[in-house]
Amino acid sequence: MYKKLLLTFLAFSLAAGVFSQNLKPVDAESKVLFVIKNMGLSVDGSLTGLAGTINFNPKNASGSSFDVTVDVNTINTDNKRRDDHLKKDDFFDAAKYPTISIKSTKIQPKGNNTFFAQAILTMHGVSKNIQFDFIATPASGGYRFKAEFAVNRLDYKIGGNSMTMGDEVAVKLDVLAKK
């Protein structure tokens, strides 16, 4: 009896390692940062309100996925007037599109805690396929995910043509996710 129970427990424990962990982003311990050129200067900012789900198993990357959002109304460039303008309809239109979302469509391992992701990024009501590498390192009770990629704001109909503002936005993610 005890042998069967022990074998069942061991089999379940080993099988649990094959399945993805269901994780939630920890907003207070994560960073969603961006940088864009404006009048020749780099303007950086951040977004908070990170929410969603991350199912991750480094041994089964193809079975892993993420679907997370960030709150557009939290945009912060250390300039309240600019932040208020960015929330208006000629930029993010936060009243109509209150979140930015990113949802994976494919994850592949690359080695050394590095993975390749294909995902759909949705901003301002426009969804586009993107791809990027990310690093996943174990953290207490979960994982820390780090990634960098660039997007063209015009692809998402944000801000329109501008002689003073750059089109490319560099995005940097540092997300802690726990059970």
Score class of each variant (00 low, 15 high):
F116Q: 12
L33P: 07
A16W: 11
F115V: 01
A177H: 06
S140M: 15
D89M: 15
A147V: 02
K31Q: 13
L33F: 13
K178D: 11
K37N: 13
E29V: 14
L47M: 12
R144E: 08
G166Q: 05
T53N: 06
D78H: 15
A170F: 08
K59C: 03
N152R: 07
L154A: 06
V151C: 01
V32P: 03
A51F: 06
L50T: 06
Q131P: 05
G125P: 00
N79Q: 07
Y2M: 15
E168S: 11
N38Q: 14
L14T: 11
R153H: 03
L23S: 09
K179I: 14
T53R: 05
D167L: 01
F9M: 10
S13A: 15
F56T: 01
K4A: 13
T99M: 12
F19E: 12
K59G: 10
S20C: 09
G17R: 11
A16V: 14
S127W: 01
F66G: 00
T69C: 07
N22W: 09
R153N: 00
A177P: 06
S104E: 11
Y156K: 13
T53I: 07
L121E: 00
V72N: 00
V72Q: 01
H85L: 08
D27W: 09
K96S: 14
N113D: 07
S62M: 06
V171G: 08
F92S: 07
N129K: 12
L41I: 11
D78E: 15
Q118N: 14
F56D: 00
L14F: 10
V32W: 02
N113H: 04
F92G: 08
K110M: 09
V171E: 02
N76I: 03
S13N: 11
G45R: 10
N22R: 15
V35H: 11
N22G: 15
T105N: 05
K24I: 11
A139R: 05
V175R: 04
D71R: 04
F132S: 01
I100S: 08
Y143D: 06
S127R: 03
G49A: 09
F66N: 00
F9H: 07
I107Y: 01
H85G: 03
Q21S: 12
N129R: 08
V175D: 02
T99R: 15
D167G: 00
I107N: 05
F134Y: 12
G63P: 03
T105H: 08
A177Q: 08
A136E: 03
V26H: 08
A136M: 04
K4S: 13
L7Y: 12
K157W: 02
I120G: 09
V26K: 09
I130Q: 05
V18P: 15
G40P: 06
L86P: 01
A147W: 00
I158R: 00
N55D: 10
S162F: 01
A147F: 04
L6Y: 09
A95F: 15
V32Y: 04
L10W: 12
Y97N: 13
K37C: 05
G111C: 09
E148T: 14
V151R: 02
I120V: 13
F134T: 04
S127T: 01
I100W: 11
Y143N: 09
Y143H: 09
K179Q: 12
D84V: 10
P25Y: 10
I158G: 01
N129F: 04
P109T: 01
I36D: 12
K146Q: 13
G17Q: 09
